[in-house]
């Protein structure tokens, strides 16, 4: 028996919007720790890792570890039928081939049940070792989204270079080039607007903007984004979900032939 009741149903809607363009089908894993997912895109270039901790749910019952295969587009369609302020409950019986999404409006005078078929998915789970990254940048999530969107109108890839002074995003295309530098900030009154850089070593890596633009669909989930890079590792882009967990995206770099 599985029963997860989330007071902020809008949060689950945002989570699905943040994953559905990257991954079609994925297994959600439910354990006493929480509700999680790890899935790669079809070309094995990017990976999304989601954790919603059990403590963040108003009610969390998961009698045994279960893995439930779902089509993320279909799940997003069903969740779009929930109001942003609705309470959402996920329910599944042991051995059942479907999951029920129950939506309750805030005044609790409208209750809707949506039942979705589960799928069998052969998932390729990757072991991601904990790593110390050479450069970590924390910046406003909306600013990062804006930069990725703007640069993708000029070029297909972005060179991200981190130094002690700041982080530079550069691209080039048929019409010309673009460089955007975000300097490290020192304000203390508005931490959500700060650009914070923790650097062991300067790093410069190139990434496909198409994927970064897909990751920025998670922007509504967090005010800040953390970008971790090392010269010999995929980058990690993390959006922390307050009180619940995180959504992390891993992206393999492009390298010179």
């Amino acid at each position: 028996m599985l029963e997860l009741r989330l007071l902020q149903g809008g949060l689950l809607k945002k989570v699905l919007e943040a994953m559905k363009d990257l991954v079609n089908d994925a297994n959600f894993d439910c354990s006493p720790t929480g509700f999680s997912l790890q899935a790669m895109d079809s070309s094995h270039v990017a990976l999304v890792s989601l954790l919603l901790r059990s403590e963040g749910f108003e009610h969390y019952r998961c009698d045994r570890n279960v893995s439930m295969g779902m089509n993320l587009n279909n799940m997003a369609k069903m969740l779009r039928c929930a109001g942003n302020d609705d309470i959402v409950t996920l329910k599944a019986d042991d051995g059942s081939d479907c999951i029920t999404f129950m939506f309750e409006n805030p005044s609790q005078d409208k209750i809707a049940d949506f039942e979705m078929k589960l799928m069998d998915i052969d998932s390729e789970h990757l072991g991601i070792p904990d790593a110390e990254y050479q450069s970590i940048v924390r910046m406003p999530a909306a600013e990062f989204a804006r930069i990725c969107r703007d640069l993708s109108t000029i070029g297909d890839t972005v060179l991200i270079s981190v130094s002690k002074e700041g982080v530079q995003f550069s691209t080039r295309g048929d019409m010309g080039t673009a460089n955007i530098v975000c300097r490290r900030t020192t304000t203390v009154d508005k931490p959500e607007e700060d650009v914070i850089i923790e650097m062991e070593e300067p790093v410069s890596l190139t990434f496909a903007l198409r994927y970064l633009n897909s990751f920025t669909k998670a922007t509504p989930l967090a005010t800040q984004v953390t970008i971790s890079m090392s010269s010999d590792l995929p980058m990690v882009i993390e959006y922390r979900i307050e009180g619940m967990g995180y959504i992390r995206y891993y992206l393999a770099p492009k390298i010179d032939e």
């Binding site: 790669m40 070309s43 094995h44 270039v45 990017a46 990976l47 390729e124 789970h125 990757l126 072991g127 991601i128 070792p129 890839t157 190139t206 496909a208 590792l233 995929p234 891993y250 393999a252 770099p253 492009k254 390298i255 010179d256 032939e257």
Partner: peptide, 14 residues
């Protein structure tokens, strides 16, 4: 020319 690396060249399947 730049080549897109795969995640599988960094992380092991578990």
């Amino acid at each position: 020319m730049q080549r897109q690396k795969s995640l599988l060249s960094f992380f092991q399947k578990s």
